[in-house]
Amino acid sequence: MGETFVLSESMEDYLETILNLIKQNGSARVTDIARTMEVAASSVNESINRLSARGLVEQEKYGPIKLTAAGREWAERIDCTHQIIYLFLEKILGIDPETADRDACAIEHDLSQKSFKAMVDFLLANGHLTEQSCALAILAKKEEADGMAAKEVMLNDLAVGSTVEVVKLTSKGALKRKLMDMGLNRGAKIEVKGKAPMGDPIEVKVRGYSLSLRKKEAEEIMVREV
């Protein structure tokens, strides 16, 4: 979902602030955000519009700002990364809380997945984290996503007999429409039934009937094994 694009540091800070305000006060208003982050209300408005365009926050006119599901996920990930860095600096390295917090703020945006995992493992081994920590959920989710991404292939690469599910169509316009109209939309189960004697086109079974398509067209269909 949200992971496909990047956000600037300040945008991430906004998301984090909104999340914390909602946690503390039950809602986040422009004025509260401006006060917490020590910026002008006008720049808050501008940033909120940008976040809203990306579907991360929602705001009724003059109402409080709400996080969308994607926005909340993003904010929680940043917030959790912050906590892990802070714990690592304070508990393991013995840095004073104020410096640890300030450094965590600076590092949280750029921390690699690898370092994050190493920190989490180290904290776990030394008893500073519980199994319920937000970090474990984030790591599990990331691994699942990586695992799935690895198994995603294009339909034309499959051997006869494979059974797969459509992930998405990469084509546009008339071909995409035709494929969807023939029942090859997301989630559709496909069985590769055969290849023509010269190797192209291929025959698949989808939604209870047989369909043929050229390899060039199958190339536009991303699938994963089921």
Partner: peptide, 11 residues
């Protein structure tokens, strides 16, 4: 204009 071969193979 691209032609395609997305065609049903009826029983």
């Amino acid at each position: 204009e691209r032609s395609h071969f997305v065609m049903e193979l009826p029983p």
